[in-house]
Design a protein around this nucleic acid. Structure first.
Length: 591
RNA sequence: GCGCCUGUAGCUCAGCGGAUAGAGCACUAGCCUCCGGAGCUAGGGGCCACAGGUUCAAAUCCUGUCAGGCGCACCA
C-alpha cells in the first residue's frame, strides 16, 4: 500500500470537539468541578430517533459532580457554543444521554472527503511509522497446507494490510521449520516409499507421514536421482530424500499461497539459525546472564522467572536442541532487527506456549507486550450440512489448495475472516460456492459490481457520473441516502478499531452492512430516470412493497438528483473497494 | 488436578459498561415489462448457561458453579 494520505472522521471530530469545548467552558465558568477533561467518546444510538450520536459523559460525571446526570447534561448542552453550526438537534434523554443530530451539510462533506482521499480513505497514522513484523502460516514443509493454515494466512494478511493502513511499517514473514525431528521423519518416510517403489523391503516409520502425497514426492525423487540411492548408505540416502522432499514441498506451499493470493516479504529458515551458530550464541548469551542451568543432563531456560509456570528444556539429554532453542534464537533475531512490535499468528492449540515466548522476550530485556500472539482456531469444513471428517495422522485432510480451487480465493478468504479468529469456524463449502445473496462474499462484491454496472448504463445513456464536488449534494435528503453516508463516515473508525484490536472480522461485518444498505437503497430508489420507452403507465414496475412503491412514485428523477445519487454511489463503491482491498479480496466490476 | 478459551434466537455468530440485545441462515408470507432478482420487503422466534457481587447503569466487569473445546513433553 504505502503512499501518503490520512483520512479523518470529519464529522466525529467536530462533534467531539464541540463536546470537549463545552466541558472546558463549563469548567472555566465554574459550573463543573472536573479537574482533567474526561475523554469523550461517541456512541451509536440504537434507534434513529435518538439522533446520529450519543454521549454519556454526563452520567459518568454525575457522581463526582454530586449532581443528577440530567443536570450535568444540561450544563454541557448550554455550553455548546457552536451548537447551531454543527447540530440540527441536541437533546437530553432519560438518565443523562446527550443525543445529537448533526446538520446535513456536515454529513454531506463526508462525500467530498472520500472523493479527496480516494484509495487513502480509511487510512490513519496510529502507527506513526513504527515497524511491525508479522509472522504467520509458518507451516512445516512436510506436506501441503491444510485449511487451518489457510485461515491463518487470510487472518495474517488482513492484519498486515490493516496495520499498514493505519500507519505501521509492516513486514510479513514466514518462518520455515526446516530443522528438527519432523524433517527427519519426512526424510525417512520418503525414503521408505522410494525403496518400496523399487521393490525393496522398507519399514515405514510408525510416526512418519502417511499421506498419499509422500509417494508422489518419492516418485519425483526417483525422477531426479534415478536408482542411485538404492545402494547408497541409508543415512545418506535419507538425507538426500529429505532435502529433495523439502525443496519440493516448500515449493508447493509457495505455489498454494500464491494461488490464494498471499505473498510474504521474507522467508526465514530455522536451519539457518543452526548452521550460522545463532542458536548456540543465544544460549551462550543467556548462560552468561544466568538464565540457563543444567539439570538431569539437560539444559533449561529459566522461563519461570518471567511468569511462565515452569522452566523449559532447550537442549535435551542426548544433546539435541528443542524447538524452543531455535524459537528463542528466532525471536531474538526479530527483536534485534529493530521491530517495535512482533506479531505471531499461531494455531490455537499452541496457546500454552504464549507465556514461554513472553518470557523469552523479557529475558532479552524487552517488555512482554513487544510480542502479540494472535490465535487462530480450528476450521471445520461442512458439505451438505455434514462435517467433512479429516484425520491428519492418516494423511486424510482437505488441503487449502482444494478449497481454493473449489470455491475461489476470494470466497475462501472472506469465509476465513467472517468470525473472530480465536473462535471455531464452520466453513460451509456449498454456501461459499453459491452465487446468490445467501453467500456473503457475493453479496458484498455484487454491491460493488452493481454500481459498476450502473456506470455502464449511465455511459450508454450519455449520463455523466460526477464526483461529489461536481454535484449539488443538497438534493440528497432521503433517510436512506443519509443512512449510507453515515455508514461511509464510520469507515475510518472501523478500520482503526479493527487494526488496533487485530480483529479483521470487524471489517468483514462492516462491509456486509454497507452492502446491505446499498442493496436496499438500490431497490427502493431510482438513480437514473427510467428509460422513456420502457416506462410503464403506472410507473411502478416490479416494486410492489407499499412503502418502497410510494417512495418511487413520489420521487421525481431530475438530472440534478441523478447526478447527486451517482456521486453518492461513486463513494460507496470507493469504500467497498477500499475495504475489500484491506481483506485481500478483489472488487469486481462484473461478476 | 492445574491453566487458557468459549457458553447470546432452531443453526452459525456479532455486540464486550449505557436507553425496547442484533445479523446471516433456516422458517412463514410476499415481490422480476424499466438502472444486473447474484436483489428486496414484512413476520414469528431470546430469563444473553446458572448463582452471587461491583455500578446511577451489566450480555458486557469481579467471584463461584455447571457444560464444551484446547493445552499441561527433554514433540513441532
Amino acid at each position: 500500500m504505502g503512499e501518503s494520505g490520512v483520512s479523518r472522521d470529519i464529522v466525529q471530530e467536530k462533534v467531539i470537539d464541540a463536546l470537549q469545548d463545552a466541558l472546558q467552558q463549563a469548567k472555566r465558568r465554574g459550573q463543573l468541578k472536573i479537574e482533567a477533561l474526561p475523554s469523550v467518546t461517541l456512541d451509536q444510538p440504537k434507534r434513529p430517533e435518538w439522533g446520529d450520536f450519543a454521549n454519556t459523559v454526563a452520567m459518568t460525571l454525575a457522581s463526582s459532580e454530586q449532581r443528577a446526570p440530567h443536570d450535568v447534561a444540561q450544563i454541557i448542552l448550554e455550553n455548546m457554543a457552536q451548537r447551531e453550526a454543527i447540530f440540527d438537534r441536541v437533546e437530553i434523554a432519560r438518565p443523562g444521554f446527550l443525543n445529537m443530530t448533526v446538520k446535513r451539510d456536515l454529513w454531506l462533506q463526508v462525500l467530498s472527503e472520500i472523493e479527496a482521499q480516494g484509495e487513502a480513505y480509511g487510512r490513519a497514522d496510529l502507527g506513526k511509522g513504527r515497524r511491525v513484523l508479522i509472522e504467520y502460516v509458518s507451516a512445516n514443509p512436510t506436506g501441503p497446507l491444510h485449511v487451518g493454515h489457510g485461515r491463518g494466512a487470510a487472518v495474517g494478511q488482513a492484519m498486515a494490510r490493516l496495520l499498514a493502513a493505519v500507519g505501521f511499517d509492516v513486514v510479513q514473514e514466514y518462518y520455515v521449520n526446516d530443522a528438527g525431528r519432523q524433517m527427519k521423519l519426512l526424510g525417512t518416510s520418503v525414503y521408505a516409499r522410494y525403496l518400496e517403489q523399487n521393490g525393496r523391503a522398507a519399514t515405514f516409520p510408525e510416526e512418519g507421514y502417511h499421506g498419499a502425497y509422500i509417494a508422489a514426492v518419492a516418485a519425483h525423487v526417483q525422477e531426479r536421482v534415478g536408482t542411485t540411492l538404492l545402494d547408497a548408505p541409508p543415512e545418506q540416502a535419507e538425507q538426500r530424500c529429505r532435502d529433495l522432499a523439502q525443496e519440493e514441498l516448500l515449493g508447493l506451499i509457495r505455489k498454494d499461497l500464491q494461488a490464494f493470493g498471499i505473498e510474504f516479504d521474507a522467508w526465514f529458515s530455522e536451519a539457518s539459525l543452526m548452521s550460522s551458530g545463532a542458536v548456540r550464541q543465544v544460549l551462550d548469551d543467556l548462560t552468561q546472564r544466568g538464565l540457563l542451568f543444567e539439570q538431569d543432563g539437560a539444559l533449561w531456560f529459566r522461563s519461570s522467572s518471567f511468569g511462565d509456570e515452569k522452566d523449559r528444556v532447550v537442549r535435551k539429554q542426548e544433546g539435541d536442541y528443542t524447538y524452543l532453542a531455535s524459537d528463542i534464537a528466532y525471536h531474538r533475531d526479530k527483536l534485534m532487527r529493530g521491530y517495535d512490535l512482533l506479531i505471531d499468528v499461531w494455531g490455537a492449540d499452541h496457546h500454552g506456549y504464549i507465556p514461554r515466548m513472553e518470557a523469552v522476550v523479557q529475558a532479552f530485556g524487552y517488555p512482554k507486550d513487544r510480542l502479540r500472539v494472535v490465535l487462530v482456531q480450528m476450521v471445520s469444513l461442512m458439505r451438505a450440512g455434514q462435517k467433512v471428517e479429516m484425520s491428519k495422522r492418516a494423511g486424510e485432510f482437505i488441503t487449502l489448495r482444494e478449497v481454493v480451487d473449489e470455491v475461489g480465493a476470494d470466497a475462501a478468504k472472506f469465509f476465513f475472516l467472517m468470525r473472530r479468529s480465536d473462535t471455531h469456524l464452520d466453513f460451509d463449502l456449498d454456501l461459499a460456492k453459491q452465487r446468490s445473496a445467501d453467500n456473503p462474499v457475493y453479496y458484498v462484491q455484487y454491491a460493488h459490481a452493481r454500481i459498476a454496472s450502473l456506470y455502464r448504463v449511465a455511459e450508454a445513456r450519455g449520463i455523466r457520473v460526477p464526483k461529489p464536488s461536481e454535484a449539488d449534494l443538497s438534493l440528497l435528503t432521503d433517510a436512506d441516502e443519509f443512512g449510507l453516508i453515515r455508514k461511509l463516515a464510520a469507515y475510518p473508525s472501523v478500520v482503526r478499531a479493527s487494526a488496533e484490536a487485530l480483529e479483521p472480522h470487524r471489517l468483514t461485518f462492516y462491509l456486509q452492512e454497507l452492502a446491505g444498505l446499498l442493496h436496499t437503497f438500490y431497490y427502493k430508489h431510482r438513480i437514473m430516470p427510467p428509460a422513456v420507452e420502457a416506462e410503464a403507465p403506472d410507473g411502478q414496475g416490479f416494486v410492489t412493497d407499499a412503502a418502497a412503491l410510494s417512495v418511487r412514485q413520489r420521487e421525481e428523477m431530475t438530472p440534478g438528483l441523478t447526478a447527486a445519487r451517482l456521486a453518492l454511489m461513486r463513494e460507496v463503491q470507493q469504500v467497498l473497494r477500499n475495504g475489500l482491498a484491506l481483506l485481500g479480496l478483489s472488487a469486481p466490476d462484473r461478476m
